[in-house]
Amino acid sequence: MITITKPKPFEEIKQYLKRSKGVYLVGCGTCATMLHTGGKSEVLSMKDKLEAEGKKVTGWMVIPTGCDPLAGKALETKADDINAADSILVMSCSFEVQTVRLYSPNKSVYPALDTMFIGKEERPGYFAEVCLQCGSCILGRTAAICPLVRCAKLLFNGPCGGSVGGKCEVDPGTPCGWQQIIDRLTTLGQLDQLEEIEPVKDWSTSVSGGPRQITFEL
């Protein structure tokens, strides 16, 4: 599993930092390093770009795993450099942006990347979304392929009329998720499973239900 990110337009980043006198940069040693969006070299080139714009960069670090609670400890080790800045620019996924926010109550925290999706590398260099965390998983009825992220219309009961040659009507480069589900069920000899009508979805367990949280007895 990997969180897929892509760089935001530099103009947008400049807007965020308009009022900042000093900026501290944070990258991530895991997903963002692997994708070349927020590893050491990207952080250093961002530093150059910001300095070329006249911004003061007070320091930088690449946290080994930015979404981990240890990120807090890592930030403490550089407290002086961070305190010299008034904002922190995070070159990682939204998890790290919000982790840094949690440990930096007095600093403005901004994202330098767009967090796109949680994906899986299905063949070298090809990442596809696997799950949107809907909270009521239907994979058990769809050959373990998620139609919510693999079908452009989030259909629950089979392919739309635009599925042609295994491709989605929305983009000829994108596989039709329902073709994939049908192919797999055919291989498994379980295509009859699709005869049942999938009931309407309970979206209340998803974003429609409001902020999601849970407390575990530890």
């Binding site: 089979g158 392919p159 040659g165 049908i182 192919d183 005869e195 009508i197």
Partner: peptide, 21 residues
């Protein structure tokens, strides 16, 4: 609606059956 020209062709008729159901 139903599209007899979309794929997977063999499945189309089953989708119609599902709509009837």
């Amino acid at each position: 609606a139903e599209n007899p020209f979309a794929d997977p062709f063999e499945y189309r008729v089953h989708r119609l059956a599902k709509k009837i159901k």
